[in-house]
Amino acid sequence: MLHPHHQAALDRFVTAYSQKDEVQAIIVGGSLVKGFGKPGSDLDVLIVIDEESYQKRQATGDLSYYSTDFTDYEGGYVDGKHIGISFLEKVAEMGSEPARAAFWKSFIAWSRNDPTELQTLLNRITTYPEEGVQERIHRFMAQVQAMQWYVGEGEKHNNPYLLSWSANRAVLFTARMLLAHNRLFFPYHKWMLRMLELAQDIPTDYLSKVDQLMRNPSVEGTRDLCDLVLEYRDWGTPSTFWTNYFLQDSELNWMNGQTPIEDL
C-alpha cells in the first residue's frame, strides 16, 4: 500500500523520469506494494530503459538508482535499479525466486507505450515455477537434515559460530520447504518470515519456535524446529540420500556454475 506521501513522491518521480528518452516504463515494487512496508519506508522503483541504454549500463555496472529529490518525508528516498526488457524476459524464463519476488505485486506506474505486453511479462515472472518444485523441496530438506548434524558438531566442539550458523540455516531451509509447499516465493531474507505469515499450510507454532531459536540458538531448539517441519507432512521420497544432495549443493556446485541453494 502506498501512503499519500509515497504516492506524491511517485508522482514527482514519474513526472521527471518520463521525460528521459531512455526510460520506457516505471514499475513500482518493494515492501510497500507487498503490504510489508511502513509509513517511513522507501519507495522502490524498477526503471525500464531501452535495450541499448540497458546494455551500456550493464557493461559499466551502473544499474542502481538512489535519490532523495522526490521525497518530502523524514528518512524518505527513492531507490531501485535500471532494467531492460531482455532482463525481464530472462527472469521470466529462468529467474531465481528472489528475482521473481522483486516483481510480486508490483504495478506499472507509467509506460511510454501500450503496457499490455509488459504486464504479460510481469505476469509470467510472478507465476510460481511449478516445474521441479518437488526436487527443490527435497534439496531444501537435505540442508535441514544436514543442520541437525552440524548443530551437534557445534556443541561438541564448543564452537558457537557453527552452532549459530546451523540454527540460522535450519530456519532458512525449513522456511524454504514451507514456502515452496505453499507456492510462495522466497523474497530473500529480509521479508522471508513475513511471507510465511501468508502461508495457508504451516505448523501452527512454527513462527514462534523460529523466534525462540533465533533469540537463543541451541542444539535442542534447532533439532526441535527441524523435526517439526520434517514430520509435519509426507514430503515424498527423495531420489537420493540427503548427503548426496548436500554434497552437490554445498560443496560441488561451483563446478557447474549452478545457482547456490540459498538463492534458488
Rank of each mutant, 00 (worst) to 15 (best):
G61N: 08
E130P: 00
D62W: 10
K81T: 04
S86D: 15
W191C: 01
W235I: 09
Y66S: 09
K209I: 03
L252A: 13
V14N: 00
A109E: 00
K20V: 14
I202G: 02
T174D: 01
V23Y: 06
M1G: 09
V171M: 09
G75I: 09
R136Q: 12
R57G: 11
Q258L: 08
S64K: 09
S67H: 02
E89S: 09
D11K: 10
E74Q: 10
N253P: 01
L193I: 11
T120Y: 00
I125G: 04
T127E: 15
S64P: 04
K90V: 08
I47H: 00
L88Y: 10
E130D: 11
I26D: 00
N158H: 14
D69Q: 15
V78A: 01
E155R: 15
V45W: 00
P39R: 02
D42V: 00
K209F: 01
G154N: 08
R169L: 11
A59Q: 14
W110I: 05
D79S: 12
V45K: 00
L207E: 09
T243I: 14
G257Y: 13
G37T: 03
R112S: 04
T68Q: 15
S166G: 02
G76S: 03
F87I: 02
N244G: 09
S106F: 04
T174L: 01
T15I: 06
Q145E: 15
R112W: 10
P129S: 05
N159V: 02
V229A: 07
A99L: 13
S106G: 08
P98L: 09
V48Q: 03
T60F: 13
G75E: 07
L172H: 13
L63N: 11
L196M: 12
A199V: 10
N182S: 04
A92T: 07
V28K: 00
S164I: 12
E197I: 04
H82W: 13
V23I: 14
M141Q: 10
G30V: 01
S164Q: 12
P160W: 07
